[in-house]
Design a protein around this nucleic acid. Structure first.
Length: 297
DNA sequence: AAATTGCTCAACCGCCAAGTT
DNA sequence: AAACTTGGCGGTTGAGCAATT
């Protein structure tokens, strides 16, 4: 037999979370750390199913999440990454992969933003495109797009590297002042978390001690020290699990990086190597060209 | 001022791979 | 090995708000 069910689905509450529920959930996670979601409703008395608790935490309450308008830079990143990853058969979790390149944004946020804003924008662009369209021009523009994607990614990733040098607590202040409007309740709740962030829950600190600081960002441009087989390690290893502060703090909570790690490394290798494309990378470019052309709309 | 339409985004749903018993 | 759950994902919904008529 398997494990017992996560919750009694009959007495489960649905709909928007109240601030009180948020506080209960955050307090519980402060004490026990994220994970073992099955026990959360039981132990907190929340009338929510474990899945709902997890989603509320990962998409809204988790510290380090930026809310509010997307910047032009973020927008471009998403568009280009969507063009590159969106329809590739390699990527079974494209939003998570894209989110790993857009710091402080959740995959749900990016997905929403894409569906609401960017699809429309691109449709408009497509209409303009049709006026000038012939195959050669279309492909040339996509080539330009790919080139711009490379630049945008390089810029963004080097920005990340800079911000990562800050202590984790000040990171919040910076992100809060820089941009964007945090949902007031989330902001209040994130304040509750500040002390906790200095001392992560013991259950996590034991297993994730190396990943509890933003120093994880530094691995962005380093070779994988655990890797001893030469070929697989030649490429620049981007530790996607550490790309954002929230994922570094709550490694349990990250999107499933393992399954995307190999293809991402391939992509990153291509992105970071200025110059001649290798055979496999050409395939990737060609695939992106075809797929993005066919799949945008 | 009231009704209608459009927009936004948090939350839900269903599916699937991985893990557990 | 089989049965079952968990956790994670993409797609979708619907309540609430804003803009327009």
């Amino acid at each position: 037999m398997g494990r017992p069910p996560c919750c009694d689905k009959i007495s489960v509450k649905k709909g928007p979370w109240t601030p009180e529920e948020d506080i209960i959930l955050v307090s519980y996670i402060q004490e026990h750390g994220p994970g073992n979601w099955r026990s959360v409703p039981t132990n907190t008395g929340l009338l929510r199913c474990s899945k709902s608790c997890r989603l509320r935490w990962t998409n809204y309450l988790r510290p380090g999440i930026k809310r509010g308008n997307f910047t032009d830079h973020e927008e471009k990143m998403i568009i280009h990454l969507q063009a590159l990853l969106g329809n590739s058969f390699i990527y079974t979790s494209r939003w998570a992969a894209i989110a790993s390149y857009v710091p402080q944004r959740t995959d749900n946020d990016i997905k929403n933003y894409w569906n609401i804003h960017l699809k429309k924008k691109l449709k408009k662009l497509q209409i303009n495109e049709e006026e000038v369209s012939n195959k050669g021009q279309w492909e040339r523009r996509l080539q330009t797009d790919i080139h711009m994607a490379k630049q945008a990614l390089c810029e963004a990733l080097s920005l990340d590297k800079t911000t990562s040098k800050q202590p984790y607590n000040s990171y919040h202040e910076v992100s809060g002042s820089n941009s964007s409007i945090y949902a007031s309740s989330a902001e209040n709740i994130s304040k509750l978390l500040q002390n906790w962030m200095k001392i992560p829950p013991s259950s996590n600190s034991e297993t994730n001690s190396s990943a509890t600081t933003p120093e994880g960002f530094d691995s962005l441009f380093t070779f994988n020290s655990n890797c001893h087989s030469s070929d697989a390690c030649q490429s620049v290893s981007v530790d996607t699990a550490n790309l954002t502060p929230e994922t570094s703090l709550f490694q349990d909570e990250t999107k499933p990086i393992l399954e995307t790690q190999v293809p991402l490394t391939l992509l990153e290798k291509w992105l970071f190597e200025d110059g001649v494309a290798h055979e496999g990378q050409e395939d990737l470019i060609n695939m992106s060209l075809e797929d993005s052309a066919a799949g945008f709309f």
